[in-house]
Amino acid sequence: GACAGRGPRRRPRLLPSPRPARAEAGGQAYYTALINVTVLSPERGGPTLLRIDRGRYGQDSPKVEVKGLLVAPVPINGVADRLGCDPRTRFQVPPNTKQWIALLQRGNCTFREKILRAASHNATAVVIYNNISSEEPVTMTHQGK
């Protein structure tokens, strides 16, 4: 993940899928979230574009485009914590950043808790990534705000 002010900066853009909703095994419809991330890193000699087309919007999430700086939580007592479950979770957002997106790892608490914690720090959106890389994406069900 990228912590603002250190290492590469990631500027993601979430786009609603132009494809109609599809159904999962249980018959639940979902929308594909296309994620474009521009990584600005001096080591790479210029910006690098990453495109992820396997994301999914949450069941109750607005299906709208979101742009902003991607920010992972800062370490808690010197230990990296990407889950966003701890009440001490904080994000280091650069000054004058109007829109930013929280990057959180799946696991340890509910999607709702993660989303509400990031929202309490004024995140524009939340991207939650799988804690097991071989798993298929899931449609989050949450009753966030």
Rank of each mutant, 00 (worst) to 15 (best):
K98L: 15
N96E: 11
R19V: 03
V37F: 07
A23W: 09
S61H: 06
R10A: 10
C85G: 02
A29N: 01
V79Q: 12
C85P: 04
A33K: 07
R117I: 10
T32I: 15
R112T: 11
N36P: 03
S61E: 09
L40P: 02
D53Y: 12
T110C: 07
E135A: 04
D81E: 10
G107I: 14
T48R: 14
G26E: 13
D81Q: 10
P75H: 12
R22T: 04
S134E: 08
P94Q: 04
F91E: 04
A125D: 01
A23V: 14
Y30L: 03
A125W: 06
V37D: 05
A125S: 09
S134T: 15
P12E: 01
T110I: 08
L69Q: 04
A25C: 09
A119F: 11
R51W: 04
L83D: 00
T97E: 11
C3D: 03
S41A: 09
S61I: 14
A25E: 12
R112M: 02
P16G: 02
A21K: 08
N130T: 12
S17V: 12
D86G: 02
E136H: 00
P137L: 06
Y31L: 06
D86Y: 05
G144C: 15
G5S: 09
P47A: 13
G55K: 11
T139P: 03
G84L: 14
K145M: 13
R88Q: 10
E43A: 11
L104D: 00
L40F: 11
Q143F: 12
N108C: 07
E113Q: 07
A29K: 08
S61T: 13
F111L: 06
P137M: 07
I132T: 07
L15G: 00
L34N: 01
A123P: 11
I115Q: 01
G46L: 06
N131H: 10
